[in-house]
Design a binder for these strands. Structure first.
Lengths: 235, 235
DNA sequence: GACCACAGTATGGTCAGACCATACCGAAGC
DNA sequence: GCTTCGGTATGGTCTGACCATACTGTGGTC
């Protein structure tokens, strides 16, 4: 069984070729968010492929949160370049959680890591904290666990936003989306949310004071309070 | 302009419906990696939709790294459930970097965060370090910057693997993929890689000793050595 | 001149049916 | 037992058609 030096020819499906050409146009022509791609029929003709292949490429781009298609006519119709990495990441996580390729534990650990980092960054850069305060007020006014989690999510995503890193913020948002149901259950089990409130205030104040280390610690302890089962367990 | 309580009906495209049904089957029937989905024609008939719609749904699932399609006949043909979140994340990052929605700085900061965390986890759990040692040997034998970066990537991904968190590991792999070209350039600019080697040895030893704090510090300083422009710059 | 109703049209969404290349399966022949 | 070769199920692609949508422009009305 000698190595002949031959390698299998990479099979390129038509829609992958279309994809590659669109991507090339994006990078080379410097297309940016808001720009429109040619209409499907037009693109198909220009590339010499069928409309089906163009459509399959569009589905991929849409899945990755790079384009958004609108029917009808006019300036807003057609395929427009967008930037929605959040929903793509959310879909990714949800499906892989469903496939049992990922476990909730891994998602929460990742969230823990991100949130500590983001809180420290936000504190260090003295970021704007008005969104945090608004979310805090929303939690105080919440009447159900779902509502509470809604504003809690806003609070924690605002921390990620405040870090100034859009990639981190997008990952954070999709992580929270994936664990929404889990979080609601955790809040219900907890019953009393006053401990969480105190934690939130502590985090907010640490960020406002610019105390990065304290912000990190506060986040860590907050997560231990919110998900005690994951931190106290034997494993 | 009063709120009538009416909300626009969410337009559901056929392929989205197909997608939802497939996802439901995955979660409810407990389908897992290696299981096969029905053939496209069969699925189309069962769902009462056209094959095009089924195919568009397949493209989405394939993009998200959940299924893999093989032509031909036999046990391996057709749409098989897989788990490749890495390539999906890589595509996501590459496209959004191309769209200038993300900057390399954000990618590298994210990598910095992940790697510190992963090194600490690996040290704390006394993870197996044989992959790290192998990558180190590979770097020593490398004759070009590309080869060096290849094994360097393997080294750093092995740290993420050693953390035991598959989500973190997948993110790490896609981050490295996205910055490959950037890394090669950085190594070329650096010229001498002996500093990097010393850093790697220090990281490896810290993990082997179970010294989490030292591992974190070692990673941090290593990144400062590898990308001096991002850490010394004026802001 | 301002406004409104309506036909025209470009867009994505969907469908049906055909053909191709691939790769396994199995029977026929050696 | 082995090889050969046709059968067949699979995804990949193409064509052409029709639908729903939503803007555009025209022409009429006041």
């Amino acid at each position: 069984m000698e190595d002949t030096g031959w390698r299998p020819v990479k099979r390129t499906r038509t829609f992958e070729d279309v994809l590659a050409q669109i991507e090339r146009r994006i990078t080379e022509d410097g297309l940016t968010v808001g720009d429109r791609l040619p209409a499907e029929r037009q693109l198909a003709e220009q590339l010499g492929v069928s409309r089906s292949s163009v459509r399959e490429a569009m589905r991929v781009l849409e899945t990755l949160g790079v384009v958004s298609s609108q029917v009808g006519r006019g300036p807003d119709a057609g395929a427009v370049l967008t930037s929605r990495p959040d929903s793509a990441l959310t879909d990714l996580l949800r499906l892989h959680l469903g496939l049992a390729t990922l476990e909730m534990r891994e998602v929460i650990d990742t969230r823990h890591m991100i949130e500590q980092w983001a809180a420290a960054q936000a504190a260090a850069s003295r970021a704007d904290t008005s969104a945090l305060a608004a979310a805090l007020a929303g939690m105080d006014a919440a009447r159900t666990a779902e509502e509470f989690v809604e504003h809690d999510t806003a609070f924690h995503c605002a921390i990620a936003d405040a870090s100034g890193n859009r990639l981190i913020a997008a990952i954070m948002r999709s992580l929270r989306d994936s664990m929404r149901r889990y979080s609601v259950e955790a809040v219900r089990r907890l019953g009393d949310t006053s401990v969480l409130r105190a934690d939130h205030v502590r985090i907010l104040e640490a960020i406002e004071r610019g105390a990065a280390g304290e912000a990190t610690r506060a986040v860590s302890e907050h997560l231990a309070h919110a998900y005690p089962s994951l931190f106290a367990g034997p494993g």
